[in-house]
């Protein structure tokens, strides 16, 4: 489903991904945790090539690319295999909630407008925004914006949805409604990779968890094992720090 081999990325002198290997099965919900600067967001953003990796092979769905010799067309094809939910929502500011969801269907998939709107409305209802179809992002709360962002990602019917810290920018009052929507989607066997700082949520929603540090995957296991019986000293230390903060 998703196979990543020897993925490398550096920003100048700083090595952010140090030859990462990753495999995700269809229907998996994979949570990526780790301290800031460990490379988890970069890993996610390399999967849809918002960051260009320096080296590595990425295979998602039907598309397999070697990033060192990738054509424009391949870049585009690989991006179409996934959709992303951003930390800052990144909703199209000049479009209504419904238009945000239908934009890719009409523009990229050349679907006719009526069909796109039918799907768009269905998805907005699914994320609990049946009364916000025609509102612009500026008039929505953070939680509502992020739910539109999730509907927009679902619309392209991707092989996998990439969540880049989906609740980090939210006011605390909106976090639970967004997490609930993500949980609902997870139950429908959508393949998801979630970079998150919400450990409780990761434990509840994921069937696998990866702990990253310094550009490497340090430990990978079931949530129960990672959170309650971590093997690697780095993982132990990280989880201990979190407990102290709470």
């Amino acid at each position: 489903m998703i196979t990543v081999t020897n993925l490398k990325k550096r920003f100048g002198e700083n090595i952010v991904l140090n030859g990462v290997d990753l495999h995700v099965n269809r229907g998996d919900v994979l949570a990526i945790i780790g301290p800031s600067g460990s490379g988890k967001s970069t890993l996610l953003r390399c999967l849809n090539l918002l960051e260009m990796p320096d080296e590595g092979i990425i295979e998602i769905g039907d598309t397999k690319v070697d990033v060192t010799k990738m054509s424009r067309k391949e870049t585009h094809l690989l991006r179409q295999e996934t959709a992303m939910v951003f930390q800052n929502y990144n909703l199209f500011k000049n479009k209504t909630a419904l238009q945000n969801v239908t934009e890719s269907l009409i523009v990229a998939k050349k679907m006719d407008k009526q069909e796109a709107e039918r799907i768009g409305k269905e998805l907005l209802i699914k994320v609990g925004l049946e009364d916000k179809f025609h509102q612009y992002p500026a008039t929505l709360s953070g939680g509502q914006q992020q739910r539109v962002g999730i509907a927009r990602a679902l619309a392209v019917n991707p092989h996998a949805i990439l969540f880049d810290e989906p609740t980090s920018a939210l006011d605390p009052e909106w976090v639970s409604e967004v997490l609930q929507v993500i949980k609902n989607i997870a139950q429908q066997k959508t393949t998801m990779i979630i970079v998150t700082h919400e450990m409780k949520f990761a434990e509840e929603v994921a069937n696998r968890v990866i702990f990253m540090a310094d550009g490497n995957i340090v430990e990978e296991n079931e949530p129960k094992e990672i959170f309650h019986n971590p093997k690697n000293p780095r993982t132990k230390q990280f989880l201990k720090t979190l407990e102290r903060d709470e």
Binding site: L49, H76, F86, A153
Partner: peptide, 23 residues
């Protein structure tokens, strides 16, 4: 225009040209 707007377009499978024209 925020860089995230283009990233959002690319992330849902639009091309750079489509992102420029539409967003």
């Amino acid at each position: 225009v925020d860089k995230g707007q283009v990233e959002a377009c690319l992330s849902v499978g639009m091309t750079r040209a489509q992102a420029f024209r539409r967003i």
